[in-house]
Design a protein around this nucleic acid. Structure first.
Ligand code: FES
Ligand code: FES
Lengths: 155, 155
DNA sequence: CTAATCCCGACTATTTTTGTAGGCAATTGA
DNA sequence: TCAATTGCCTACAAAAATAGTCGGGATTAG
C-alpha cells in the first residue's frame, strides 16, 4: 500500500515543469536532471502523463514538454492516477459479480479509493510547487525534487 | 498502491474466526482450509496479528487461535495495519527533517493515510462477517473467503 | 511419553518495479 | 535536402518486494 517511484517521479517532473513555465518547453533531459530521475525511465512516465492529458509535447529541435493546463488546475490525485498502474487497493471494483452492488467488501474498498483521491485532489500542483520550491527538506525519505542547477524560481 | 495478499489473507482469516466463535479455538489448518490460504504462509500472518493483539493462541493439543476481542470491537483498518508491512503510501511520515512540521507534501500524505484508516476503521469485523457469510460473490478478483466445508454459520 | 499444535528463522520462487538500450518519427533550420 | 535535436515506442535486464515452502523447536493435553 505504498506510492511507487512512478508516482513520485510523476509528481516531481510536473513540479519541475510548473516551476519553469515561462521558458518554453523543457526537454526530457532537463527535467530528469533537475528532478534527479533516470532519463529513460522518466520518458515512460511522461508518456503516461501525456496520454492522460496532463502534459503536451513537441518533437524536434527546441521541442520538449509543457503542462497541458495551468498548474492551478492540475491536481495531485490526477498525477498519481496517471503515473501509477492503479490507485485502487483492491481489484474487485473493476469486475462484475452478481452482488457487487450490495457487497460490503466492494463498497468498503471503493470508499477507501474515493477518500484517497479526494484528499489528493484537494491539492493543486501549484500549491505543492510553491511549498516544494523553497522547502529545504532533501534526501532521506523525502520526496521533493532535488532542483539541481535551478536558477529562476517560484511559480 | 494496492492491498497485498497479506492484508487480504489477514482479513479472511479473521472472518473465518469470527464466524466460528463458539466452537473453541480453530487450528491453523482449519482456518487455512476454510479461507483457502496456504497454511505455512498464514502462519506468518497470524504471528503478526497475534503480536498486534488481534488474536490469541494456545499451543499443544486442542490449541489454536481465537479472536482476542469480540468481532464487533475489531476493525478492518487494524487488521490491515497489522498484516501489511505498511499502510502509509509514503515513508516520509516516519522520519524527521527540519521542516517536516510545515511540509505540505508530508502533510498531504499523512492526511491520505489518515483518511484511509478512518474509512477502514469505520467497518467492524462483525459487520463484514455478516455480509461475507452469505455473499455469493466468489472467484474473480473478489476477496471474500471461500468458506470451504463450512457448516455452522453467521456471527 | 507422544501426538497435536503453535513458533520461528531461513530459504526459494514468482511477480512487480525499476531501469536500460536502441531504433524510428517528427521538427527545425541551414 | 540534410543533419541535428528531440520525443516515441518496444523489448530487454536487473533489482526489489511479495508470496510461498521447509524443517526444526517449544509447549501442552492426555
Ligand atoms: S463484489 Fe467483490 S468481494 Fe463482493
Ligand atoms: S518532510 Fe518529507 S518531503 Fe518534506
Amino acid at each position: 500500500m505504498r506510492l511507487t517511484n512512478k508516482g513520485k517521479y510523476g509528481i516531481n517532473a510536473l513540479l519541475v515543469l510548473a516551476s519553469s513555465q515561462e521558458d518554453g518547453p523543457l526537454t526530457l533531459k532537463t527535467i530528469a536532471g533537475k528532478a534527479g530521475i533516470p532519463e529513460h525511465y522518466l520518458e515512460q512516465i511522461m508518456g503516461r502523463l501525456r496520454q492522460c492529458g496532463l502534459v503536451a509535447s513537441t518533437r524536434g529541435v527546441q521541442g520538449g514538454y509543457r503542462l497541458a493546463r495551468e498548474s492551478e488546475k492540475i491536481f495531485i490525485g490526477e498525477i498519481v492516477e496517471a503515473a501509477e498502474d492503479s490507485v485502487q487497493p483492491v481489484k474487485c471494483a473493476a469486475h462484475q459479480c452478481e452482488r457487487s452492488d450490495s457487497c460490503l467488501n466492494h463498497d468498503l474498498w471503493s470508499r477507501v479509493t474515493e477518500s484517497m483521491l479526494k484528499t489528493l485532489n484537494g491539492m493543486s500542483l501549484a500549491a505543492l510547487c510553491r511549498d516544494a520550491f523553497d522547502h529545504p527538506c532533501r534526501g532521506g525519505d523525502c520526496s521533493y525534487p532535488a532542483w539541481e542547477n535551478i536558477e529562476s524560481g517560484g511559480v
